[in-house]
Measured scan of single mutants.
Amino acid sequence: TIDDAFRAIERAIQAENEGRYREALKHFLDGGEMIVTAAEKEASQKVRNLLLHKGKEVLEWAEHLAEWILE
């Protein structure tokens, strides 16, 4: 659900702030994927587009974090 997705993102932010970057990455990926999944089930085109945009933002952040971890 969207609530689960945002809880995962909150955990990711907390982990990132505490320097637990790999854990943060996992939570960002989980949250982003949950948002995209919820968007695919959404009946309203406007809400679907907003959710897809937010999911994409979260997944892009996860990608940047992963690249930073690997440096």
Rank of each mutant, 00 (worst) to 15 (best):
G32D: 01
R20E: 05
A8T: 11
E63W: 14
A39E: 02
R7H: 07
R11F: 07
N49F: 11
S44Q: 04
W61Y: 15
D3W: 15
G31F: 14
G32Y: 15
E16V: 15
M34H: 03
K54A: 12
T1K: 06
N17L: 14
E63H: 10
D4F: 04
Y21G: 01
D4N: 04
E60N: 11
R48I: 07
F28E: 00
A38C: 12
L29Q: 08
D3H: 14
Y21M: 04
A8H: 11
A38G: 04
I69L: 12
I9T: 00
K41L: 06
G31D: 02
L50V: 07
V36A: 10
G19D: 02
S44H: 04
A66L: 12
L59C: 09
A5C: 10
A39P: 01
T1H: 09
L51M: 04
E40V: 13
S44I: 10
S44L: 12
D4S: 08
E60P: 00
V36K: 14
L50W: 15
E60Q: 11
R22T: 10
E23N: 03
L51C: 06
R22L: 13
V36Q: 07
A24E: 02
E23K: 03
F6W: 06
G55H: 13
E63T: 14
L70P: 02
A15V: 02
K46M: 10
I35Y: 08
D4A: 05
G19S: 04
N17Y: 12
H27L: 15
E33C: 14
V36F: 12
V36L: 15
I2C: 10
I35N: 02
A66W: 10
E71K: 09
T1S: 12
L51T: 00
Y21I: 06
V58N: 00
A62E: 00
A15N: 03
A62V: 07
E33K: 13
S44W: 07
A62R: 02
W61I: 05
I9Y: 02
R22I: 06
E16L: 15
Q45D: 10
T1Y: 09
A24Y: 03
E33P: 04
R7P: 02
L25N: 00
E23Q: 04
T37R: 15
A5G: 02
M34G: 05
K56E: 07
R20V: 03
E60S: 11
L25K: 01
K41E: 06
E33Y: 15
A8Y: 10
I13R: 05
Q14R: 11
A5R: 01
V47P: 01
E71Q: 13
T37H: 11
F6E: 03
H64I: 06
Y21S: 01
E67A: 14
G31T: 03
A24N: 00
I35F: 15
A38H: 07
